Computed example of a mutant assay.
Amino acid sequence: MFDIYNIYVKFVSKWNKKRLTYAVLNQNKQLKGRTNSILAQAVRYWGAASGLSFRRVGRKSKRDMAIRFAPKAHGDGYPFDGRGGVLAHAFFPQDGRIHFDADERWTDKSKWGINLKIVAVHEFGHALGLDHTTDIRAVMYPFYQGYNPKFRLGADDIRGIQFLYGKNKK
């Protein structure tokens, strides 16, 4: 039997290496110093499902991906719209920019506000080369579904990342 998957992989680009670095250029003030640990949790989802590994480097270091919180027009041609609406966006490889709307109410482990970890997992997916999917169970579905304390990647997410980078051999 032939199984049709919702593979949503962008074929235009992927990283040509499996060890990637990222830098957090500024902190989210609402999360009071937890920004780095939340973003580290987010990249671990993709590393656990694939042959990728990630290392955070300093703001001024050479890096593959750069993360920042910015309001409204922030210089990339894709301005944010304030609270609600567009939460974040990321550019496909080899660009590596990941931006979060600074006007959102970012939260951690709370159903109130916007969960940074879940949105970050989605945006890291784009930065790794994944596009949106039609599978509502996948993190790469194009709409934020709210906080889920049992959050995990969907089967479609895992198939997509493994298609690009292989399985985790650990």
Rank of each mutant, 00 (worst) to 15 (best):
M1P: 02
F2T: 12
Y5E: 12
N6Y: 13
N6H: 12
I7W: 05
Y8T: 12
V9T: 15
V9D: 10
S13R: 01
W15G: 00
N16K: 15
K17R: 12
K18S: 15
R19G: 06
R19Y: 05
R19H: 12
T21H: 14
Y22W: 06
V24T: 08
V24D: 03
V24E: 03
N26F: 08
Q27Y: 07
L31H: 04
L31M: 08
K32Y: 11
G33N: 06
G33E: 04
R34H: 12
R34T: 09
T35S: 08
I38V: 08
L39I: 14
Q41L: 13
A42Q: 09
R44P: 02
A48N: 14
S50G: 06
S53L: 06
S53K: 10
R55T: 11
R55Y: 03
R56Q: 15
R56Y: 04
G58W: 09
G58L: 05
G58F: 07
R59I: 08
K60M: 13
K60L: 11
D64Y: 03
D64C: 12
D64A: 05
M65P: 11
A70Q: 03
A70K: 04
K72P: 02
K72D: 09
A73Y: 10
G75I: 12
G82T: 11
V86Q: 02
V86H: 03
L87T: 00
A88E: 01
A88L: 06
A90L: 07
F92I: 09
P93Y: 01
Q94A: 09
Q94E: 10
D95S: 01
R97W: 11
I98N: 01
H99G: 03
H99A: 15
D101L: 11
D101F: 07
T107V: 09
T107Q: 05
D108I: 04
D108P: 01
K109T: 09
K109S: 09
K111R: 13
K111M: 07
G113M: 02
L116N: 03
L116M: 11
K117M: 14
V121G: 03
H122V: 06
E123T: 10
E123Q: 08
G125V: 06
H126N: 00
H126M: 03
H126P: 01
A127Q: 00
L128W: 02
G129W: 02
G129M: 04
L130V: 05
D131R: 10
H132L: 00
H132D: 07
I136A: 14
I136H: 06
R137I: 00
A138I: 11
V139M: 13
M140W: 02
N148T: 02
P149I: 07
P149S: 11
P149K: 10
P149V: 10
F151I: 14
F151Q: 02
A155V: 14
D156T: 15
D156K: 05
D157Y: 09
I161L: 10
Q162G: 09
F163S: 07
L164E: 00
Y165I: 01
G166Q: 03
K169I: 12
K170A: 15
K170S: 15
